[in-house]
C-alpha cells in the first residue's frame, strides 16, 4: 500500500514537472526570438483615409481570438470604443504596442472605454501571437474578406496589411479621434489618452 502511495506521488510529481516545463520555458526569450525582422523602414503610411473626425464610424462585425462575434454596435450607448489597428502579428513595433496598453486598463475604465485590437491576420496566428501577452481586451481578426474593415476605414495598405492606426469612437458611434501613425513608430500613449479624456470634457 505504501509503495502504491509513493507511486501515485511520483506520478503527480511527473505531471507537475511536465507542466512547469511548458509554462516556464514559454516565458523565456522564445517570444522575442520569434519576432520577424522587418528589415528596412517601410513607407510611413500607404493608403488614403476614408473617414474623418465627426463621421459616423463604419459598422463591422468581426470574430475575436476568443471565438466571439464582436460588432461595433454592441457598444453603442454603452462605452467609448478605441480601435487599435496594427499592421501584422509577430512584427517588432506591434509586439510591444499592445503589451503597453495591457497595463493601462484602469485608464480605459476611467474613461468608460473599451479597446478592440484588430489586425488582418487569421485567428490561429493571432492566437499564437497574443497567447503570451495575456491581454485584457479582445483581439479581432480582419482576415476574410481580407482587410475588409481596414478598407472601409481607408487604412488598408497596398501590401495587404493595415496601417498602424488608432480611432476613438464615442458612445453615439461618432469618430472623435484619428491617428494614422507612421507604421515604423509606436504612437505615444499620452496622445491617445488625451483623446479619450477630451470625450469626457465634451
Amino acid at each position: 500500500m505504501v509503495r502504491n502511495q509513493v507511486a501515485t506521488f511520483m506520478g503527480g510529481a511527473f505531471i507537475v514537472v511536465i507542466l512547469s516545463i511548458t509554462t516556464c520555458y514559454a516565458q523565456s526569450a522564445i517570444f522575442q526570438e520569434s519576432i520577424y525582422n522587418v528589415g528596412k523602414k517601410l513607407k510611413p503610411t500607404n493608403s488614403s483615409l476614408k473617414v474623418m473626425v465627426g463621421d459616423q464610424a463604419p459598422q463591422f462585425t468581426l470574430t475575436s481570438v476568443g471565438g466571439d462575434k464582436i460588432s461595433l454596435s454592441d457598444f453603442r450607448g454603452e462605452r467609448n470604443v478605441v480601435l487599435s489597428f496594427v499592421p501584422a502579428a509577430w512584427t517588432p513595433v506591434c509586439s510591444e504596442q499592445w503589451p503597453g496598453y495591457n497595463i493601462v486598463k484602469d485608464i480605459f475604465d476611467k474613461n468608460d472605454a473599451i479597446l478592440l485590437g484588430i489586425t488582418v491576420d487569421n485567428i490561429p496566428t493571432l492566437y499564437s501571437w497574443t497567447r503570451e501577452m495575456s491581454l485584457w481586451f479582445p483581439v479581432l481578426s480582419d482576415f476574410f474578406p481580407h482587410g475588409e474593415v481596414a478598407r472601409k476605414y481607408g487604412i488598408l495598405r497596398s501590401g495587404g496589411i493595415s496601417e498602424r492606426a488608432l480611432f476613438i469612437i464615442d458612445k453615439k458611434g461618432i469618430i472623435q479621434y484619428i491617428d494614422v501613425h507612421d507604421i515604423n513608430k509606436r504612437p505615444p500613449l499620452e496622445d491617445l489618452i488625451q483623446g479619450l479624456e477630451k470625450l469626457n470634457i465634451k
Partner: peptide, 10 residues
C-alpha cells in the same frame, strides 16, 4: 526598460 516591454513588466 520600456513600459511596453512584457519582459520588463514581469
Amino acid at each position: 526598460f520600456s513600459m511596453y516591454c512584457p519582459h520588463c513588466q514581469r
